[in-house]
Amino acid sequence: MLSILNSYETKHKRQILSADIDYYNRYVCTSSADGVIHMVDTLGSKHHSLVELKEHIGPVWQVMFSHPKFGYLASCGSDGKLILHKMKKLDQWYVVYKYDRHKLPTTSIDWAPYKTGAIIACSSSDGTISIHTLYSNEWSVSKIPNAHLNGVNCISWAPYLINNQLVLVSGGNDTKIKLWIEQKSVWYVMYESDSQLANIKDISWCPTPGLQKYIIASCTVDGQVIVWSSDDFYNWTTTEIDATEQNKSKVSWSQIGCILSVTMNNDGIKLWKQVGKQNWMCLDRKVTRKPQPSFEHQIKHSINTDIFSGIF
């Protein structure tokens, strides 16, 4: 049975759009339609918002911590900017990099596997994807122009190198997903899907191989969740999950085991486990409240654990 570890009130004045937790489960970061990023240090005694970052103008669509080897907090928003923060000293964050050359809102960000270096991709409603790479303390930028017609909504890196190369998957308003690979500083489409029923809203690459070597999940604006599977990276099969339920908004994977989390528009979550190459079983798990030990005790024993691990 899953249970709530902790909850706290934020100071956001509008809807929370994104949340992320750093590698050590210490800092909880949230972004909102009010244009503010809040940071909470969970090792404190009061667990309230200690840091407010206000570099964006308008809704902040996503926040994401990098691997602790680099120590960045990335954000993107409706002002078309990608902003990287870094901690100067305890609970004091400052801007170290800002990119504002997208012509329309930036919609999604994702860090590449840390072993490849500090690399972050950023998608935009202008139809492009920018790739930002840190070389000798300087950021260089390459772009994928015309990645998706009418805008790119979501991106996700492959969690490992494929044929010794980084691979990026994207979804957009052309109702397609595309796989991108770099050759001599130019990004090429290695796979392009047929059109789905609606615009692609979210996409996520499974971090661990399952019954097939490569697995990706996508979600459309009308709630269609598709699992894309392949053994050779070039030929992909599709499986729709929970076709009768349409109010889905986000997909994400557990770090261990092939378990897919599907977030519903009614704030519910469904977990799905692969039981065959094209068969997925819904794990009926409810989130319940029960008496908890001290919060500090919970944090100490939750470092580097996966919330899905209790399912096995």
Rank of each mutant, 00 (worst) to 15 (best):
Y97W: 11
T133D: 01
K54W: 04
K143A: 08
K89R: 14
S45Q: 15
I131H: 01
S75K: 05
S136W: 03
Q92E: 14
Y97N: 04
D91Y: 12
N25D: 13
M39P: 01
S130A: 14
A112V: 07
Y23F: 15
P59K: 11
K81D: 11
E55S: 14
N150A: 12
S75P: 09
Y24M: 08
V40Y: 12
I131N: 00
G80F: 07
S130E: 02
S142H: 06
D34R: 04
S124R: 06
S31C: 09
E55Q: 15
K46T: 15
M87D: 09
D100F: 13
D110W: 01
W111G: 02
Y23P: 00
A112F: 05
T107L: 05
F70A: 08
I129G: 02
S45M: 13
M64F: 02
T107D: 05
S32K: 02
G127H: 04
V60G: 03
S45H: 11
D41E: 10
S124I: 06
T116Y: 00
L149N: 14
H102G: 08
N137R: 15
T133N: 06
P105R: 07
S140T: 15
Y99K: 04
V60S: 06
V95T: 14
P145Q: 06
Y23W: 14
G71N: 10
L104H: 06
S66M: 04
H85V: 01
P145T: 13
G77A: 09
Y27R: 03
Y94N: 11
N146Q: 11
F65W: 15
G127R: 03
S31Y: 08
I21D: 02
V36E: 11
A112K: 00
A147M: 03
C29L: 08
S45W: 08
P113H: 03
S142T: 15
S32N: 06
A121I: 07
C122R: 00
L134I: 01
S136D: 14
H148T: 07
Y135Q: 13
H56C: 05
S66I: 00
Y97M: 04
I129P: 01
K115M: 08
